[in-house]
Amino acid sequence: MANNRRIRIELLWFLFILPVLAFYLIFFIVPSASTVYYSLTDWDGVTSKFIGIDNFIEMVHDQMILTSFGNTAMYAVFITIVQNLAGLVLAVFMVKNIAGVNFLRTIFFMPYVFSALLLGYVWSFILEPNIGVVNNVLEFARLGFLKQNWLGDPAIGRWMIIFITIWQCVGYSMVIYIAGLQAIPKDMYESADIDGARPFSTFRHITFPLIAPAFTINIMLSLIGCLKLFDQIYALTNGGPGFATNSVATMIYNLGFGSGTRWGYGTAMSVTLFVCILVISTIVLPYLRRREVEM
């Protein structure tokens, strides 16, 4: 009797979460599952035929796809490292009691507030080789020999994408590091002072270990963000010239869906990207968590 009553109560509670579950099922689980299915078809947006793992086999042999994976790895490694280093350095200065610190924090954080697409388009005007500010300022300063095809040369274009993404996102990393730094008890620094620790030693042995949780969050967020990098590339180079600066995400759009016919192929690329992010996160996150405990 008591059991039945408990089951009824449990069912009643379950009824309350049913709408949310249905919503989650319809708008997340079903589309995700259908993504996996469509990756095994030649879906063109209208019709589809099951073709097994043909899309994945083709992907392995497609030089453009391999290039986009290489580019994505390059973006992920450099942006994650530099963004976090720069964010940490900025945070260390922005927690000091200096005049105008709040204003400076706002300035550094501001680019992150704006749309990446919008900033990408603004930067593409700034870096335009004929009428852009950068080349014209260089010309005016008699440094014309430094003028470059900033976005039209694949080798430079990739670095510009990295630079602009770091410029936009460094403020976000800085804010997380500031939160981490402000949570460190002041008495630890006082003890270090009394013990005669130098600033670098203080940073190495007190600050850095104690901001490990902030470090973990920042690394994971920037890594996953870079693996999905799309907006900046779309606005700055659209993956070009040709396919030279594409990331996997822009390649999915350009080749899979932009062509209008290879939606199955695009879906297969999406699944591959998802698996890559899953694998990298599964390896990196526990490592960083372990490091937090060790420190």
Binding site: D44, G152, P154, G239, G240, P241, G242, F243, A244, N254, L255, G258, S259, G260, T261, R262, Y265
Partner: peptide, 19 residues
């Protein structure tokens, strides 16, 4: 009409010595 070959990007790639 439904070819997946992106002729515009391929020609641009040709200009950039990407193909």
């Amino acid at each position: 009409g439904s070819t997946s070959f992106k002729i515009d990007m391929q020609i641009q790639s040709l200009m950039a010595s990407g193909t």
